[in-house]
Design a protein around this nucleic acid. Structure first.
Lengths: 217, 217
DNA sequence: AATCATTAAAGAAATTTTTCTTTAATGAAA
DNA sequence: TTTCATTAAAGAAAAATTTCTTTAATGATT
């Protein structure tokens, strides 16, 4: 079957996954006052191939100079911009349990362009409280607040069995993207962006390497 | 160049990433009393191709029955075993800040075979406290405790700039695997397993889809 | 009992991602 | 000034992963 349209100009997801680390590295170099950095240096830091770095950076407007490398400042500026870390987007978080409150405490999210406007839960013990200056509301109040505030992302940190219910509510509320931290997979309309982040997948990979994989010799 | 040895029998990492979700789905079905599940059902739940599911499951000992599907109980049992979720491994966590304490609160880790024996920090405010029954020690005490307890994994949840220092200590302490939650990349000997889990990568992917990617039409 | 529809499984093909190779540029050293 | 070594960049090749195709099995339906 002929495919008449696809993602235009899509940057590979593995590339995007690596970029925040390039950025973190460059930010560190910037603080240390280093002006240029070569793909070899970056690759060495990341334990990957140098051409991988140049390929990845070639998706942006950054250009390197032969025998010199890339300008550190340019990497920081262009990459933050490219990754969407330089504009602030608003989010609601549903599920103010342990993982939820950890995210509320994480200043890194703010640093990378995500502002959590409010949190929601059903637990009377947490409702009304403030976690790191973010107020926790009863989930029934979500609809009204979503109207007032310009919120485009919903973060799901409830138990897996409630993920779909929360997702349905978020879609009804007009949210554009959902960051799902449960192992459950949610069904949403095609135009809603879903990103699943399951910590346990990483655990599974570690265990697999520890228990199964024999070493290369 | 001829490669004389490689990973033997390596299961693709994307496969392992998907497996915890298969498992979570199967556990849900088991609770509901469903006895069999087809690859189509699983694929529909995951929003992936059915053959992907059969391929993934073919790496395990699970076999399906034509026109019936896979036995739910078998998926649960074999997958938990396969993913290493059915034996308990001990870990130390360094960095009892917001993310660190969230992990300490997360019962899911225990459910999936990871037991955090102790936590470490340098902040006097947290040292001596117990977080969800896990005691927080000063990092200097790590060496002694590592001797006593059979700990194979170290979890790094310190600020990025301290990641390498902590990793070096962990390696010196004889840890076999490191789960690194910072965006920094750490250098360790080849025989140490490192798994990097950077939340901000996921954020980058969402932003990229929100800001850059045009929809297919 | 015969047909049909659904399914797992295996292998082929297509796609995606990574690694390798070549080229040209240029700062540093001789 | 000339040579040398390092680098980015572009394209080719290789490797990994996903999707497609075919086959055979079998429960359900007629």
């Amino acid at each position: 079957m002929v495919q008449y349209s696809k993602k235009i100009q899509g940057v590979p997801e593995p590339t995007i996954r690596r970029m925040p680390s390039y950025l973190a590295f460059a930010e560190g170099l910037l603080r240390k006052g280093q002006q240029f950095v070569s793909s070899t240096q970056i690759a060495n830091y990341m334990n990957i191939d140098p051409t991988q770095v140049t390929k990845d950076l070639s998706y942006t407007t950054i250009v390197g100079k032969t025998r010199v490398g890339y300008e550190v400042k340019a990497i920081v500026d262009v990459l933050s911009e490219f990754l969407g870390f330089s504009v602030m987007d608003n989010a609601f978080l549903v599920g103010a349990g342990s993982l939820g409150s950890a995210l509320l405490h994480d200043s890194g999210l703010n640093h990378f362009g995500l502002n959590i406007e409010a949190a929601f839960d059903v637990n009377p013990a947490t409702i009304g409280r403030k976690i790191n200056d973010v107020e926790v509301f009863h989930i029934d109040q979500f609809r009204d607040l979503a109207q007032e505030l310009n919120v485009i992302m919903g973060i799901i940190t409830v138990p897996a069995e409630n993920a779909q219910t929360v997702a349905d509510l978020m879609v009804a509320w007009g949210i554009k993207a959902i960051w799902n931290f449960t192992p459950a997979r949610i069904k949403v309309p095609d135009d809603i962006i879903v990103q699943n982040t399951t910590l346990y997948s990483n655990l599974a990979i570690i265990f697999n390497k520890l228990h199964h994989e024999r070493k290369e010799e």
